[in-house]
């Protein structure tokens, strides 16, 4: 898919370059190709439409047709627009009191793994991370966090034996936290679908008790067109403060991130690039934009020119 997209865009690009006199319709053709590329990268349908419109306007405003290399120019405008949408520079984690981070997201997105990754990252920053297991549902979810905590030498709070109510487990965890004498607490919650009202209400109750300084939505890089619905529902329910995209070590283009960023207005705080605890990276909007467009080389080229 990667090379296919790149080829397609380069094709559009070549078409533009090859035409002696570039017309508005040439530009429209290129836009069509780019639209398809964005959709194939899982950028939301509406976001794609808006993006094309914005870029077309900018292109007209800057009188792209008169520049030496209109194709490259459009690509550059696209790239810059994406970077803008993705949120400019890197954003730091808010570690102000009460120093509590709540991890939320769909089933299997990578919440537990990312909780451990954050703990490892905080440790390297000289902080004292604490892990709190609140997934009482998935078989061995607590053990999973315990094993990871043990590997990292980070204390893990486990719910009282037999507890099935996450709200009660949260109360117990807050008591445990009081006894810990400070530290950054990471709360790992159970995965849930955004259409499950019962589980969302439960999550809201947990959130209201925890009063987190950061509420991070963890999302899989391969998420498709549901990204908008997922992000907006989680945001409505628990008011997100940031996004984490996982599994970017694969070849999913991660266009869903654009939609999630758009619909929540929340910055992307980290990305996951592997299964191991140290495989967490700070987010770079420009790299992500290039990945979504599948045209890293071209952009670098334009910037050099």
């Amino acid at each position: 898919m990667f090379s296919l997209l790149q080829e397609k865009l380069e094709d559009a690009f070549r078409k533009l370059r090859g035409t002696a006199k570039i017309s508005e319709s040439n530009i429209a053709d290129a836009m069509k190709d780019i639209r398809m590329a964005l959709l194939e990268a899982d950028v939301d349908f509406t976001v794609t439409k808006d993006l094309i419109k914005a870029v077309t306007e900018t292109a007209q405003g800057e009188d792209v047709l008169r520049t030496v290399n209109p194709g490259q120019m459009i690509v550059k405008i696209f790239h810059d627009e994406l970077v803008k949408l993705l949120g400019g520079g890197a954003t730091e984690l808010d570690l102000s009191p009460p120093q509590r981070i709540l991890m939320v997201g769909l089933n299997g997105a990578g919440k537990t793994t990312t909780s451990a990754k954050l703990a490892s990252w905080l440790k390297k920053q000289g902080k004292r991370p604490l892990l709190i297991a609140l997934d009482l549902y998935r078989p061995a979810a607590i053990t999973q966090l315990q094993v990871l905590g043990q590997q990292l030498g980070v204390p893990v709070c486990v719910p009282p034996a037999g507890e099935t109510d996450p709200v009660k487990a949260t109360r117990a965890a807050l008591k445990w936290l009081d006894e810990q004498g400070g530290g950054v607490a990471i709360f790992d919650t159970a995965g849930r679908q955004e259409v499950d009202d019962e589980l969302l209400t439960q999550l809201k109750q947990v959130r209201d008790l925890v009063q987190p300084s950061e509420t991070l939505l963890v999302a899989d890089a391969a998420t498709g067109q549901q990204a908008v619905a997922v992000a907006s529902k989680f945001n409505e329910t628990v008011t997100l403060s940031g996004l984490v995209m996982t599994k970017l070590d694969g070849d999913a283009r991660g266009g869903a991130l654009l939609s999630m960023r758009q619909v929540t207005g929340c910055p992307v705080k980290f990305i996951g690039v592997g299964e191991k605890v140290e495989q967490l990276e700070v987010f770079h909007p420009d790299r992500m934009a290039q990945r979504i467009l599948g045209m890293g080389d071209i952009v670098t080229l334009v910037e050099k020119a």
Partner: peptide, 12 residues
């Protein structure tokens, strides 16, 4: 295959 996955599912 996860139904939430987009175009990448075909590649998988």
């Amino acid at each position: 295959v996860d139904a939430t996955t987009g175009s990448n599912a075909l590649q998988q």
